[in-house]
């Protein structure tokens, strides 16, 4: 009796496992592979109560947000005008995040003429340009798409720093990815590029530790804080608009 019962239970277990195993699977929740980059250009949610400017999501209690839904573009530490951006203009990236593509789209949006877009421009090309806009932000997928390793990109960034630091070129450092684009690797690139910036543009929620504003203060360069990436249209129009 016990043997029959045990056999029946075992059979039931086999049948259940066979059918439920075939009926499902370890289907992951996301539709792309789990290994992901440090994030994308996280623009803030417009018109939301928890957007940038709300202290409850400020990770650094010492930092006071300047921008808000009603005050979307704030420039500090002086002014930066069209006169400061001689041509020709290069738009490039360090870190190969998608932010450089967004910057390219922004430049097209404002009708910027005669600029070169090359996300992997080499250091020796810097001498050809009067203004170099560098979109800072790391993305493992971007590096993969560009076919560059992290080490090579870091070396390239350092070579760019060496090329521009003693040149007359105007260097604009743009961090448009927001908080989601900050991370260990991104900050390596940020820390390399900020000392040679003549002007900084940053989506403010990526500055909640004051990294960019402190760099602007320390180096005596103007900085424009924007509420969301779309607000970059305003300073870019002033600088490069048709």
């Amino acid at each position: 009796m016990k043997k029959k019962f045990a056999a029946l239970l075992a059979l039931a277990l086999v049948a259940s496992v066979a059918l439920t195993a075939c009926g499902g699977g370890s289907a992951p929740a996301a539709s792309t592979p789990a290994a992901g980059p440090t994030g994308t250009n996280g623009g803030t949610m417009p018109g939301t109560s928890q957007a940038v400017g709300d202290a409850s999501i400020n990770t650094n209690s010492d930092y006071t947000f300047r921008t808000s839904d009603s005050n979307r573009v704030v420039t500090e530490n002086g002014t930066f005008t069209k006169d400061n951006v001689p041509g020709p203009v290069l738009v490039t990236s360090v870190g190969q995040s998608a932010d450089v593509s967004m910057l390219d789209a922004l430049m097209k949006k404002v009708g910027a003429a005669d600029y070169t877009f090359n996300s992997t421009a080499a250091a020796d090309e810097m001498a050809n340009y009067g203004t170099i806009i560098i979109a800072c932000g790391a993305s493992s997928k971007g590096l993969g798409a560009a076919g560059i390793s992290q080490e090579d990109e870091l070396a390239r960034a350092q070579a760019i720093v060496d090329a521009v630091k003693d040149s007359d070129a105007t260097v604009i450092v743009a961090h448009l990815g927001g908080a989601s684009r900050r991370g260990a690797l991104s900050d390596q690139f940020n820390n390399m590029m900020l000392p040679c910036a003549d002007y900084i543009m940053v989506v403010e929620d990526g500055n909640d530790d004051g990294l960019f504003t402190d760099a602007a203060t320390d180096n005596g360069v103007p900085i424009t804080l924007i509420y969301s990436i779309a607000d970059a249209v305003t300073p870019l129009t002033e600088l490069f608009g048709a």
Partner: peptide
């Protein structure tokens, strides 16, 4: 099977099959 509980047990297994 003579035990009705075990018969029911088997019947449950029959359903998904």
């Amino acid at each position: 099977e003579k035990n009705v509980l075990l018969q029911i047990d088997a019947a449950l297994v029959v359903v998904p099959l």
